[in-house]
Amino acid sequence: MTDSPGGPRRRDPDRRERIIAACLDVIAEAGVAGTSHRRVAAAADVPLGSMTYHFSGMDELLHEAFARFARSVSDRFERRMAAAEDVEAARRAVVAIVTEEAFGTRRDLVLTHELYTLAAREPAFRKLTNAWMARSRAALERHFDPTTARLLDALIEGLTIHRALDTEPQDPAVVVAAVERLT
Rank of each mutant, 00 (worst) to 15 (best):
G7R: 15
R9V: 10
R9M: 06
R11P: 05
D12H: 11
P13D: 03
R16H: 07
E17N: 13
R18F: 02
I20W: 00
A21M: 02
C23T: 07
L24C: 03
I27N: 07
G31Y: 03
G34N: 08
T35I: 04
S36L: 05
S36M: 06
S36R: 13
S36P: 00
R38M: 04
R38I: 11
R38E: 10
R39N: 09
V40F: 07
A41K: 03
A42W: 04
V46H: 01
V46A: 13
L48I: 11
S50I: 00
S50P: 02
M51D: 00
T52C: 06
F55L: 02
S56N: 08
M58V: 09
M58G: 10
M58H: 15
E60P: 07
H63I: 07
R68Q: 08
A70R: 07
R71S: 14
R71W: 11
V73K: 11
A84E: 07
V87N: 08
A90D: 04
A96G: 12
A96L: 04
V98S: 03
E100S: 10
E100D: 15
E101D: 14
A102R: 07
G104V: 06
G104N: 12
T105I: 04
L109P: 03
L109F: 12
V110M: 02
A119C: 06
R121L: 14
R126L: 10
T129W: 11
A131C: 03
A131Y: 02
W132P: 00
W132G: 03
M133Y: 05
A134H: 04
A138K: 13
R142F: 12
R142Q: 15
L151Q: 04
D153V: 08
I156Y: 10
E157Y: 13
T160C: 07
I161N: 03
A164E: 10
L165Y: 13
T167M: 15
T167H: 12
D171N: 15
A173T: 05
A177D: 14
A178L: 14
